[in-house]
């Protein structure tokens, strides 16, 4: 079979898998620890009639999908050039110090996970970070820490 035919065949047989990515994102959102657990993989595989390795294979490719538990809130600091030049490193350090964790780690209370991401489309207000779905720009180390403190307070209430 030519390459083209193989590609065609594989795309036809996998039709039920078309909703795999949206389903993975949905499960991750519902999981209080913001990740895809082994249990989730099993359920998704059964639901979509796919093998578990097939589900893992897709899940592991995408950086938005985590296979390890994360905190309730995801703090993502943009690391691309416009933000790096605008002082990302200082923001990064201040946030790390505030939370006492490194990149890809979660605070002990399970409230925050710190991650590094690519451009948030907010380079007109670099340096920028995103907490859950909200983008914050024109950050200083102080304002970044302030934002996190506020979140801690609202979470206590």
């Amino acid at each position: 079979m030519s390459m083209v035919l193989v590609e065609k065949a594989s795309s036809l047989t996998s039709e039920q898998s078309h909703s795999l990515l949206p389903v993975l994102l949905e499960y991750q959102k519902k999981n209080p620890c913001n990740y895809i657990s082994e249990e989730n993989v099993k359920e998704i595989a059964e639901k979509l009639n796919l093998s578990r390795s097939r589900v893992y294979s897709t899940a592991s490719f995408y950086s938005e999908i985590s296979l390890v538990p994360r905190g309730k809130h995801l703090i993502r600091i943009c690391c691309n050039a416009p933000c790096e030049n605008a002082g990302k490193e200082a923001i990064h350090r201040a946030v790390k110090d505030k939370l006492g964790i490194d990149v890809n780690e979660t605070t002990e209370d399970g409230l925050f996970t710190l991650e590094i991401v690519n451009c948030l489309g907010a380079c007109y207000m670099s340096p920028a970070m995103k907490i859950d779905d909200q983008v914050f720009g024109n950050l200083t180390p102080e304002s970044a820490v302030e934002i996190i403190k506020k979140m801690e307070q609202t979470d206590e209430e």
């Binding site: 390459m3 083209v4 590609e7 898998s17 078309h18 795999l20 990515l21 294979s57 897709t58 490719f61």
Partner: peptide, 14 residues
């Protein structure tokens, strides 16, 4: 990616 796979490029053409 739309077809639920790893987002890897395919051969062109087609």
């Amino acid at each position: 990616s739309l077809e639920g796979k790893k987002g890897r490029p395919r051969l062109k053409p087609p």
